[in-house]
Simulated scan of single mutants.
Amino acid sequence: MSYQIPCSPVVTETEEKKSRFICWLGPVTDKAAFLHQLEAARAQYPDASHHCTALVIGNPANPDVMQADDDGEPGGSAGRPMLELLLKQEIGNVGAIVTRYFGGTKLGVGGLMRAYRGAVGAALQQSELRRHVPLFRCRIACDFAGESRLRFLVNQHHGICGAVDYSDRVHIDIELPENEWTELHSKLLPEGFEVYPQ
């Protein structure tokens, strides 16, 4: 399944009853890098009340890493609504940090949820998103007569052929969209092609 990922970081600011919400939202593929970004936000806004976060690494339908943190706000009022919005919008490899400056008026749990979700929503509206298609990679072996047939089938499924090794047989590295692999594989097996995962 394809999903969206942000192309570059954005920073936006929203306000709710004089509380300021500054949202950093950007591409993240590594939890350590996200924690480094969080430390940078803490250093940039040292007098802020809270730095709440949401993180999705990988496919939002089945993430490798998925976490949210309320950073002292009432449980479930900040990180979770931020995370839920990212998942609902099918955005992966993304991190969001919302820094709050308290404006003197308590918002209540419902108000906080709307404010934090709204801060991430505003950042998403400013973000340039691109569609990410997960790729499947493997090496396929065939006899010399089967090479042109293999190249035709891979091309038919929007894949590309990479490195080729000619020894006793032909070994070709291929790469194609993950969602095309099952159908291609069902065509390869009856024709005697051998598949080696990478």
Rank of each mutant, 00 (worst) to 15 (best):
L25W: 03
D71Y: 03
S49C: 03
N179K: 12
R169C: 11
L83S: 01
E16D: 05
Y166I: 04
F136R: 09
E128K: 15
A96Y: 05
F152P: 07
R100M: 00
L35D: 12
T29G: 13
V120I: 01
S148R: 15
Q37A: 10
P9G: 05
C161R: 09
H36Q: 15
K187C: 12
P46A: 00
E128Y: 12
D168L: 13
L150W: 03
D69K: 09
G79I: 00
I97F: 04
G75I: 07
D69W: 05
Y196S: 12
P177I: 08
P134C: 08
S2W: 14
Q89D: 10
A78L: 01
P63Y: 07
I22P: 04
E73W: 04
L86Y: 01
A115T: 01
R130A: 15
F136H: 11
F21S: 00
C161A: 14
S2Y: 12
C7L: 15
Q4R: 14
H185F: 14
N179V: 13
D30K: 08
H185Y: 11
F34N: 05
S2A: 08
R139P: 07
P197M: 06
A33S: 14
R130N: 12
T53I: 03
A33C: 11
M66Q: 14
L189K: 04
S186I: 09
T182E: 13
M113I: 03
Q67L: 15
E73H: 02
E194Y: 08
E84F: 03
A96F: 06
F136W: 10
W24F: 02
H185P: 00
I57E: 09
L55D: 00
Y3I: 07
L184Y: 03
G110K: 08
L38P: 07
A41M: 14
M1D: 10
I97C: 01
E194N: 05
G95C: 04
E175L: 08
W24M: 01
T99C: 00
Y101V: 01
T105A: 10
P177F: 00
T12W: 00
R117H: 03
T99A: 03
M66H: 08
I57L: 08
N155L: 10
